[in-house]
Amino acid sequence: MKKLIPLFLVFTFINIFSQEYHFDYSIESQTNQIKPNKEKSVSTTFYDSKNNIHLQIDKYNDKLRGVIYDKDKNLRHSFKVTESKGFVTFEYIHTNDFNKEKHKDVANGDILEVNKIDSLQYQIIGYKNEKRTKKRFSALITLEKSKFNYLVIGIDHGKSDEMREKVKEFLDPNSIYAVKRIHIDYYSTGYSYDSSLKITNVDFSLKLPEKLTIKDFDFLGEFQD
């Protein structure tokens, strides 16, 4: 099992900058896929706790790309990531603007159910209908008390923000929590996996050029440069 990117890095940036994202935590995820095939992987994302923004590192054909999706602005920023002799360079490539596109989430009508197992474990179920006879997914979330708030529910679903708010209703308002582990079963696709998260402090900034290069989204095209 090979880590996607080292935790201790030196970051350099290319271009004239305007907007800046500051990342203060790294989240290392160890994922064991159970179905349809058994696979293990380790990945690292970086987290801006002030603005609730992630820098996701993707790998395809041995090429690395860094991606920031700014949900408030509906913009997706891509960076070429180069590793060499212990240094990592992030070079801005382009931005995808989704403001003009209309996305219909087929799961918007799902009914969510959150059950408390104990003070640090919660079950979340997404039902496809109001009768709650067909499940889209179920998840077991394990929390831990933390120095900073990280209630990011890593479920591929349009109502992940609503899930977080429903879990928060059960929590002690005088304590701070972070997600430690999550087990998910997607009944619609047949995927099941278990992920454990390790959170550490970092301190670096990533900046955008003054003039953004807008391109249509193309996943494979991201890795052509």
Rank of each mutant, 00 (worst) to 15 (best):
K128L: 12
K207V: 03
I5S: 06
F170L: 00
D97L: 09
L171W: 08
G221N: 12
Y25M: 08
S175K: 14
S78T: 10
Y150E: 05
L220S: 14
K168R: 13
V42F: 12
H103C: 10
H183Q: 07
P173K: 14
E20C: 05
L4S: 12
K85W: 07
D194N: 15
Y150A: 01
F13E: 08
K135S: 02
H103W: 15
Q224C: 02
L7S: 14
K128E: 05
L220E: 13
P36F: 11
S196F: 01
S196C: 01
D185S: 08
D72E: 15
D156K: 14
I153V: 10
N174F: 11
E101I: 15
S119F: 11
K38W: 03
K198E: 11
D97Q: 09
E28V: 15
F11E: 01
I34A: 01
I117P: 13
N15C: 13
I214R: 12
T95F: 06
D62H: 06
F90K: 07
I155G: 05
F79N: 00
K131W: 04
Y69G: 01
V152Y: 13
Q121D: 06
D97M: 08
F90W: 09
T45I: 09
H157K: 06
E210T: 15
D48R: 03
I68H: 02
Y25E: 07
L206F: 00
K38G: 02
I34K: 11
K102R: 13
H22Q: 07
I16F: 09
E144A: 09
Y150M: 07
F87N: 08
T142F: 06
S160K: 15
F204Y: 07
K73T: 06
Q123S: 05
S119D: 15
D156C: 05
I155H: 10
K159E: 01
P173V: 02
I111F: 08
P173Q: 05
L75E: 09
E101H: 13
A107P: 00
I214L: 12
V10R: 11
G109I: 07
N15Y: 13
G190K: 10
L197K: 13
N99C: 11
H183A: 07
V167H: 04
F170V: 00
E162D: 10
G221D: 11
I141R: 02
V88E: 08
K168D: 00
K59D: 01
K35H: 05
I53N: 04
L75R: 11
D216M: 10
I124H: 00
S188D: 15
D161H: 00
D161S: 05
L220C: 02
I14Q: 02
L206A: 04
T142R: 12
N52G: 01
D110M: 01
D105F: 14
Q33Y: 15
D172I: 10
S146H: 07
L9S: 11
A178F: 03
E144K: 13
T133V: 14
K104E: 14
T200K: 14
L206S: 02
E28S: 09
T95E: 03
Y187R: 00
Y177R: 09
Y127W: 15
E222G: 11
S146T: 08
N74G: 04
N51E: 02
